[in-house]
């Protein structure tokens, strides 16, 4: 009874059908647009085909301009399930390399963001000076900075995970700073006055009022931050001549015209990002429920 209830809710009360509808529409659009995009190649490679054969060929080319969803899914299944995960051809292997850097950068960025926010809230000089620099840092294109970070760090002998994590951090600290400053300042004047009437120290004010008040803001920032971290890690793999990671996979794909490879790496990255955000969402719901902030 309970299970069937769950199934019913999943299909008819959740967002299952709305999402399915959108995916179907995108899918149809995709197959349609693949026809003109791959037509030229089909014309060049094959002669004397009727229309049906042309359509089928343009959806199944080896190196199409636009690979079709079933080709990408086939490639992903192939490289995820039918390759050893230690193999350089396995997407799990490449995904893990990127995920490692993403998580390292995410933790660094979150820590840096919280520290900066604490500084901004507690120190008048930092309040007046830091924010413009934080905002300026995000207006510089990451593609311009990433190679410099990689090159500079390589020159002092730091390679591999850390330079990529630094780029991730560079992108992910920003939402955390903005969210945490807002969160730490969210207690109203009355709550702060109340603390004052108990002659609370600024440490007590922070730990007992400001920090718990900021938790919902922190989670909102973390969701943006982790997605930005993943982007940072992938961008960090592009200019470094890295041979492993989703970014390296995309780059290799462009070198060899392997569009299917690019798209499968792209899809894997999207899947990773979604899983990370969902994970944070679950932790958030658990924490806020535990804190009785949501019911």
């Amino acid at each position: 009874m309970k299970f069937s209830n769950f199934i019913y809710k999943f299909f008819f009360e959740g967002n299952f059908f709305p999402i399915l509808t959108i995916v179907t529409v995108i899918g149809i659009f995709w197959y349609l647009i693949a026809l003109p995009m791959n037509a030229e190649k089909v014309e060049r490679k094959f002669k004397d085909l009727n229309t049906t054969e042309k359509i089928i060929k343009s959806w199944n080319l080896e190196k199409p301009k636009l690979p079709t969803p079933h080709q990408i899914v086939k490639e992903i299944v192939n490289t995820v399930f039918y390759k050893k995960i230690t193999s350089k051809r396995s997407l799990v292997y490449h995904g893990w390399i990127t995920l490692e850097a993403t998580l390292a950068g995410f933790f660094l960025g979150t820590a840096l963001g919280i520290l900066l926010a604490l500084g901004i809230v507690h120190n008048k000089a930092m309040d007046l000076s830091v924010m413009p620099w934080v905002i300026a840092s995000q207006t510089v294109p990451i593609l311009a900075i990433a190679p410099m970070i990689i090159v500079v760090m390589n020159s002092v002998g730091i390679t591999g995970l850390l330079p990529k994590a630094i780029i991730s951090m560079y992108l992910s600290f920003f939402p955390v700073v903005v969210g945490m400053v807002k969160g730490l300042r969210s207690p109203d004047q009355m709550q702060i006055d109340q603390m004052k009437t108990w002659s609370a120290s600024s440490n007590q004010l922070l730990w007992k009022l400001r920090f718990p008040s900021s938790v919902p803001y922190l989670f909102a920032s973390l969701k943006v931050g982790i997605a930005a971290s993943l982007v940072g890690a992938i961008v960090g793999e592009l200019p470094s001549g890295a041979i492993a990671g989703l970014g390296a996979r995309m780059l290799a794909g462009t070198y060899y015209g392997q569009t299917i490879m690019i798209w499968s790496a792209l899809f894997t990255a999207a899947f990773l990002a979604a899983s990370l955000v969902i994970t944070i969402n679950i932790v958030q719901n658990f924490t806020l429920k535990k804190m009785a902030i949501i019911t």
Partner: peptide, 29 residues
Amino acid sequence: DREYGYVFQAAGLYPWRTVEGNIKLPLEI
């Protein structure tokens, strides 16, 4: 020296603390 207790117009209880936890707050401090 904590010579007075102040009750504000709004109860100003912390939503993440129980009644007990809220009363405990100044005592902890």
